[in-house]
Design a protein around this nucleic acid. Structure first.
Lengths: 206, 206
DNA sequence: GACAAATGTGTGCAGTGCATACATGATAGG
DNA sequence: CCTATCATGTATGCACTGCACACATTTGTC
């Protein structure tokens, strides 16, 4: 028993702070994520975390980056290499589920103004973009991958947020999954109707 | 000279707080939206706003509700009664533009956990939902209005957030408008491609 | 004109981010 | 092995916040 009371040096305070921040976020929402609370939970003085994170935003960015990585894993786990619209729907469900299972984390990831300075943060979002692009390329080989990736990410992302904000019924996982699948289906059914709407008449004004 | 110095009673402090809150939000972001700052700007003691708003969240909710109303007006102004996909694209552009023109407000509206208690808040969001439904019904008379409304709102909403978060190039209004239109177009082109997706040729590498 | 309700003020407390000065102990040089 | 250095953690202090409480002022209403 070499360490009667806590040793002066923590060992890996950086990681401990991240972990503590993550826990506080999941337990009591982003309002509870204060540097002091993090320090308390890590069993360390109030200002110690500043040795590892320049300010509160830096810590939040680190948490967000970890969230991006977990989201990517979660999506990949839902379907490693989606090739059909059905597969894509499964991934969409996983995306929304992640948001609903980690609401505060998801909000931190997307809902806070983020300076593009955080290296790991941008690289983590690029990874997600690449993942979506890959899916689009294999499911819709004939489409413009960039535009369609934008469309699909936006769609799924918006779906997640609307559920998160209580704009759509999110009472049970099954209800959500069904709703998401229905929305995906609706997405792929939109166009035929369109072909009878854009008429022979010349483009309207502008 | 009836009022040498400010009169004891403000007159309409409730509205003044809302106004001040809105200004602070636009000027310095949501972090600057403190009740004390609001009170200062309204030229009133720090605790006076509590007579009109139970707590900070109540004020924020009021600001959000006003934001919803303005968003609805903004959309209606973009196109009073959209009837074609082109019209719909114009509305989508307006939606995204609103988010980019009022980033902090938009975040307050959607990015904060919102208790569904705020009467005016829920009624304001219902109004937006009705508006979207109306569009969908007239543009896609043959589709399931509920599912497709969800799809389209989610899509446009996600588009707004991704631009807001710097995930998509938002350097100039024109770039954004073009991107949004391209995404809308991609949305309506998705399905034909889909029908040929489970193809004879095996998926390319990866 | 008295009185009650609505509105605004003042003070105080617990909590926050962060700057600054100081303490400790791991590690490398002699 | 002893010591100097320096990353790491501590202590203290300031300006700020939300909010509870007791108090002051004004505005109706009988």
């Amino acid at each position: 028993m070499p360490r009667a009371s806590a040793p002066y040096h923590h060992g890996d305070l950086r990681a401990a702070c991240l972990q503590a921040a993550r826990e506080l976020l999941e337990e009591d929402g982003s309002a509870a994520l204060s540097l002091r609370a993090v320090a308390r939970r890590a069993g360390v003085s109030a200002t110690a975390p500043y040795r590892h994170y320049a300010d509160r935003d830096a810590l939040v960015s680190a948490v967000a980056a970890q969230g991006y990585r977990e989201l990517a894993e979660h999506l990949a786990a839902a379907h490693p290499s989606p090739e059909s619209p059905e597969d894509l729907a499964a991934v969409a469900v996983a995306y929304v589920r992640f948001a609903l299972d980690h609401p505060a984390l998801f909000r931190v990831m997307f809902a806070e103004p983020c300076d593009p300075d955080s290296e790991e943060r941008v690289s983590a979002t690029i990874a997600i973009w690449e993942y979506v692009c890959g899916i689009v390329r294999s499911v819709f080989p004939h489409a413009d991958p960039d535009a369609l990736s934008t469309t699909i990410w936006a769609f799924v992302h918006g779906l997640a947020f609307l559920h998160l904000d209580g704009k759509l019924d999110a009472s049970t996982p099954d209800v959500v999954a069904a709703k998401v699948r229905a929305a995906v289906r609706a997405l792929f059914v939109a166009s035929p109707v369109m072909s009878q709407t854009a008429p022979p008449s010349p483009a309207p004004g502008t």
